[in-house]
């Protein structure tokens, strides 16, 4: 089960399992983002390349206007996958969310 929510603090929170069958839910949430935004991965158990591709496409869409996604609260496993995909070169990434 994959869940996306946008909270009052402006962040988008991801939780559960984001595989190819649930990636459309992530795509809809990313398509609704019009400017810089923080994405919180604290509740996310798993993400595949389908989800990574959507994050990358969103970053490409926002960049010409000087906007970007910031990826926070990455668990060890998710961070490892992002580093393999060299996301550290194109996203601001933080391991934990500052209070």
């Amino acid at each position: 089960m994959f869940h996306v929510s946008k909270e009052k603090d402006g962040r988008v929170y991801l939780s559960g399992v984001c595989d190819s069958s649930s990636a459309d839910t992530l795509r809809e949430a990313m398509d609704a983002i019009g400017g810089s935004c923080t994405i919180d991965f604290g509740g996310l158990e798993y993400i595949s390349s389908a989800g990574l591709g959507i994050l990358l496409a969103t970053q490409k869409r926002l960049a010409p206007a000087g906007e970007s996604l910031k990826l926070v609260n990455l668990g060890e496993t998710i961070r490892e996958i992002f580093l393999l995909a060299r996301f550290d070169a194109i996203f601001e990434m933080e391991d934990s969310s500052p209070g």
Binding site: S48, S49, A50
Partner: peptide, 17 residues
Amino acid sequence: LERRDERGLGVYLCRKV
């Protein structure tokens, strides 16, 4: 960034892990 392809990561990640 503007030329990074959002496709093609899957097989690469499979081989890496």
